[in-house]
Design a protein around this nucleic acid. Structure first.
Lengths: 114, 114
DNA sequence: TCCATATTTCCACGATTATCGAATTATGGA
DNA sequence: TCCATAATTCGATAATCGTGGAAATATGGA
């Protein structure tokens, strides 16, 4: 994961609504939430929410899938883990430091064994 | 750690020079680096660097101490750990997720036992 | 086909951010 | 005290960002 990509991910998270949105999806798990449900939960106008979803999506932090008329968004746990890993890389020059943890989801487990 | 503070920390990291700067300090360890040394390492004009140091400092991600004529900056590992913890909190509603890891420095160890 | 629902794109505005030279402040040595 | 070094603050400029209403684009059901 190169630095430019990380900056985009951090910028995507560095905003009130988007941070709340991302955490909402992180806590919602792999099933995700529809755009409308998110708008309701956060109290953000649809057009604004759409803008923020695009930012997070563009940064690779969330993924989109369609279910009927709804677009379902969910957190990309692998991206989150990579981001955290990048921040903590070579912490203290490697001395006395624990490695970054990961959120191990079912989909991640599959991805790893694949 | 409340959301507003986290947004400030993320915004501080969401910039090329500052991300490089923070990682430089993370890897330098608790001894830190003088402002001049950082400017040299990153190739950033002194006044610009000062601006970026202030942002990171303001966000609580780095700390400053004086040594003679030099100001030494170092990463605040506790803040970094808190930030990562906040992002991954209640991941997947708590199911099947490992907790966020921490970078355990000597100073952190002391802080914990205190 | 026609309509209702779900969501996105467009647009214009005000607000915030990054940049860096010049001037300023703090510290230590002669 | 006077000077050199280390770093910050000031100030002006260009660029990017967040906002939300209105219009446009899917999708599914009658």
């Amino acid at each position: 994961m190169e630095s430019e990509h990380v900056v985009r991910a951090l910028a995507a998270l560095a905003q009130d609504h988007r941070l709340a949105l991302f955490r909402l999806l992180v806590q919602a798990g792999p099933d995700g939430l529809a755009a409308g449900a998110i708008a309701g939960a956060l109290g953000v106008p649809a057009s604004s929410l759409s803008f923020h979803l695009a930012q997070l999506s563009n940064a690779g932090l969330i993924v989109q899938r369609r279910d009927g008329r709804s677009l379902i968004y969910s957190a990309d746990y692998a991206a989150m883990n990579a981001l955290v890993g990048f921040l903590m890389a070579n912490c203290c020059g490697g001395a006395a430091c624990a490695p970054a943890a990961e959120c191990i989801t079912e989909t991640n487990r599959e991805r790893k064994s694949a």
